[in-house]
Simulated assay, not measured.
Amino acid sequence: MSKKKLFLTLLLLPLLFGCDNKKSSSSTEKNESSSVSTVETIQLETPIPEYSVGMVSWLPIENADRYEIVLNNDHYQTTETSFSIEEFGAYTFKIKAVALTLSMFTDSPWSAEISFEYKASDLPAMFLATSYLRLQMGETYTIVAKDIDENILDGLTFRGYDISSIVIDDNGVVTPEYPALNYVEVRKDRYKTATMYIEVVPTLSSNLGHEIEMMVGEAFDLDIQSLPALKESDLLTYESSDPEVCFVGDTGIISAVKVGIATIDVACSNGGTTTIVVNVIPLIPATITFTVTIPAALADNYAIYLVGSFNDWAPLDPNYLFVKTDNPLVYIGTFSTFNIRTVINYKYILKTPSSYCWEEYNHDVMANRPLRITEIEMQVYDTVTVWQPEV
């Protein structure tokens, strides 16, 4: 049978007798310093079964120097008015009051011996959802206690040791203040108590969230943050559950390798941890229609091409040739070689009979046009103001 500490109050009924009333007043005053009171045998009440475990306590007896107890033939002494019994089982119990100065009173006789049994099934127990809680900074937790019949108990009080790093309000809501281990005692009344440890740890999080969707070929920086803030001495480590799906480097850069799901476990030397789920999906094709307005009409032996990061900046690629519209200043090209959620850089090229010219973008021949592809079908409208000299 496991040990448990519950509570019992046994009322001891000492009956104190005064001096002999037949003595005269003058005789009483004359012998006051040598008079001796006697104490009748203490009568013990039968323990109430549902409260039959834990702390036996009694009313103090005037002028008693100590109390002698016999519990299951074992002898104990105490100057307190209570005695702890911390194990379930069958017991016999008796007690007497002892006076070291006989001028006050003689020792009381032993009380009648009573027998009782401590049984767990008799107890009005209280249970918590957990005896250990790991709570991250920024989170809250509500302590809920139930009795043996699963009824939620109200009117709880909370106390403990080293709980300066958490705040517990009257409703049992725990708010962490800083990382530390806390021991908390939850009490309904004298007979219903439970304890739990609450460990407050730093919170780690990624600016990308706890669930990330990536396409094959994409790479992101997890950019891990901590509460409290990371120190220079703090060390972050990363581990992927499946590097063939999502690889993570020592600096927290994740790369989508192939379709699948992987988890990235992040741990910090300050005690914080977090897990990020990465869902790698196939590349999603995107079609983009580019409509470009040029500064002057072109002869038939001139042409407009698109060039960029998607074709390794190969000029005059026939896969990216534009078509002239009814408006001689407007050319259009529709291309389906892109993927959604990617970023491309591009420029327009003018093919001449002998060579080709780059456009000047933002007054800089070296500048490129950036484009983030966000839709399966996109329309892009651009204007070229200046062509640079032939290459």
Rank of each mutant, 00 (worst) to 15 (best):
E213A: 14
T289K: 10
W58H: 04
F105D: 03
G260Q: 01
G252V: 02
K192R: 12
S35N: 10
D223Y: 11
A64F: 09
S336K: 04
P176S: 06
E390Q: 11
T157W: 08
A367P: 02
D189V: 03
T342D: 09
T38W: 00
T195G: 12
S165D: 07
L208W: 05
F335K: 05
T374L: 14
D170E: 15
G54E: 03
P176W: 05
L102F: 05
I349G: 00
S111L: 00
Y197S: 10
D312V: 00
F158N: 02
D147F: 10
E40F: 13
E32L: 15
L350D: 01
I95K: 12
N63P: 00
S34I: 08
I143P: 03
D312M: 09
N339F: 13
C246S: 15
L100V: 02
S103V: 08
M1N: 10
P109K: 04
P285N: 01
S34V: 06
I294Q: 02
M1K: 06
I261G: 04
H210C: 09
S336F: 09
E213M: 14
C357T: 01
F247G: 11
F322A: 12
N31C: 04
I69V: 09
I61R: 01
W387C: 05
E139A: 12
S26F: 10
S355D: 15
V278R: 05
Q77F: 13
D221Q: 14
S26G: 11
G54F: 04
I212S: 07
I340W: 02
D122K: 13
T293Y: 02
V391W: 15
A112E: 14
T9H: 15
S24D: 07
I340A: 07
I349V: 12
L13F: 08
V391T: 14
L10H: 02
L135M: 05
I276E: 05
P315W: 06
P285F: 04
T28Y: 11
L298C: 06
Y346P: 05
L15N: 15
V280F: 12
G260T: 06
T142I: 03
V144A: 12
F83Q: 08
I332C: 09
E50C: 10
S111Q: 07
D221A: 14
T175W: 02
S57I: 00
D234Y: 07
K5I: 06
T101S: 12
V56C: 04
K146Y: 13
Y348Q: 07
I349H: 08
L16N: 01
K347V: 06
D169M: 03
N327H: 01
M126V: 08
P285A: 09
S164K: 07
E375N: 13
I253P: 01
T325L: 02
P315K: 06
A229C: 09
K3Y: 03
P49Y: 04
N72C: 08
Y161P: 00
M366A: 13
C268V: 00
E150T: 09
T385Q: 13
D221V: 04
G308H: 13
V98A: 06
M137K: 05
Y302H: 13
D154G: 15
Q77P: 00
V292N: 11
T342C: 02
G272Q: 07
T385I: 09
N31M: 02
N279C: 00
I254N: 04
V167D: 11
K258Q: 10
W313A: 03
K146F: 13
R369H: 07
W313S: 04
S131F: 08
D265L: 11
K4H: 04
M126Q: 13
L12M: 08
P124I: 03
S24M: 05
E113V: 13
V173I: 14
S131K: 15
